[in-house]
Simulated scan of single mutants.
Amino acid sequence: MSKIINSLFIVFLFVSCSSETSPTTTPTETNYFPPITGTTWETKSISSLDWKQTAVQPLLDYLELKNTKSFMILINGRIVMENYFNGHSTTTNWYWASAGKTLTATITGIAEQEGFINLNNKVSDYIGTGWTSLPLAKENLITNKHLLTMTSGLEDLDNDDCVTPDCLTYKADAGTRWAYHNVYLKLQDVITKATNQTWNNYFNTKLRDKIGMNGTWVTIGNNSVYMSTSRSMARFGLLMLNKGKWDNNSILNENYFAAATTTSQNINQAYGYLWWLNGKSSYHLPQSQLQFPGSIIPTAPNDLFMALGKNDQKIYVVPSKKMVVIRMGDTADNTNLALSDFDKILWQKISALYQ
């Protein structure tokens, strides 16, 4: 009898241990990074995510209606949706517009971690005095961080994105006023001087080539604008989803990444280091000094951060969903705004996929 009891006890232990060690849910999927060279990129189907196939076509119809050229969704780095419209393709370059500000923010962080610059140092330490039309005492208040956070206090009276000294006039002391301004481009001059390299060379070797992007900087009017394929934009979004890491390589210091994607000053809660932040208690828009209550895109996840450009160029990054969303194209609503109701409705359509 004791032998039978002992045998049953051993079986019970075996079953119990097996139950405890066997996973009851599918393990978290590992992050995927596409190869640096070539066109290989792993995909993941809508059905494998248990998303709603019926929500796909309404999303695509809306994107096409709103003058979209390309649209991508990545989950854990894998392509879930990749759609092109109006002759656009995987090999077509398109401009990032102000979404490319985040590229400058990223390179600024890399230059700081390499010891070339300090965010808290004044801009004139690197490019000399007289880069604005301000009195020296006022100009010397402006630091690299003020350029990153849109709090330089400068204004462009002609509103033509000019960044020559005669255009950069005084509006308020640095750090006391948030205003969207093209003066952030001076960070490119700071990095050029500090590294003793051309902007293009430093950008390409420290960021572009390390994550397999294509593309180039071009001058359009008074702007330095990045142009690339949609997949290159998605690669950058994937780098940011992974907090500045690409596979096992740290491209951007994680502390800087964290600062860049959280509120950077106490005026506009929805702004980091040239990144827009969702889910904050209030926000300012680029065109106004008004403060609006609530989240910028109430239909999107609260932890979303984004790069936004003229004519609705978009990089949306959602850490909680391991998601990157890319949209390139012409303006959605016959205006040149970087942020509009298009974002709200688009996220209603995206959310319908998984809700």
Rank of each mutant, 00 (worst) to 15 (best):
N249E: 08
L147W: 05
A260N: 14
P135F: 02
A352R: 01
M150K: 07
N334P: 00
A332Q: 09
N248H: 14
Q269W: 00
V163K: 00
N214Q: 10
R208G: 02
S89T: 15
L136E: 03
G153C: 07
W178K: 13
K349S: 01
P319Y: 05
G294Y: 12
D312A: 02
Y202T: 08
N334H: 00
S18N: 02
T92N: 12
N182A: 07
T169I: 09
L238M: 13
S351R: 01
K245V: 07
T205S: 12
I315D: 12
S18I: 01
T30N: 15
T335K: 11
P319M: 09
T176V: 08
G244L: 13
N223S: 01
A179P: 06
V324A: 04
T28A: 15
L290W: 05
K349F: 04
M150C: 08
S45Q: 07
L353H: 10
Q53M: 05
Q287K: 11
W347K: 01
Y283N: 10
K66E: 04
T54G: 09
K245L: 04
Y184G: 06
S45W: 03
K310P: 03
S340T: 03
N249C: 03
A105T: 12
Y126V: 06
Q188D: 00
T91A: 04
L49P: 08
I345M: 01
K245M: 12
N200Q: 04
Q289Y: 10
K69R: 15
E254M: 11
A194S: 03
S232E: 06
T198V: 08
H88G: 07
L65H: 03
Q355E: 12
S7L: 08
L241M: 09
W131S: 03
T216Q: 04
N222L: 02
V218L: 04
T129V: 00
I36Y: 04
M240Q: 15
T37D: 02
L103F: 15
A174F: 07
S295I: 00
G115L: 13
T262E: 05
N266A: 08
I117P: 03
R231P: 09
T21P: 00
N248D: 14
T102A: 14
I36K: 10
E82A: 11
L304S: 02
I10W: 12
L207I: 14
S98W: 08
I75P: 10
G109R: 13
G272V: 04
E20L: 01
E42S: 02
K344T: 15
G130I: 15
L238R: 13
N223G: 01
A234F: 11
Q197C: 12
D173M: 12
K186I: 00
R78V: 05
V218I: 12
S264N: 11
S22D: 07
M72G: 09
T24A: 09
T132P: 11
T261L: 08
R231V: 12
L239F: 02
S45T: 13
P301G: 03
K145I: 10
T68L: 04
I75G: 04
L141V: 06
M72V: 13
P58W: 00
N6D: 13
N255H: 11
F33P: 02
S288C: 05
L304R: 02
T106Q: 14
P23W: 14
Y226K: 06
K349E: 03
T30Q: 13
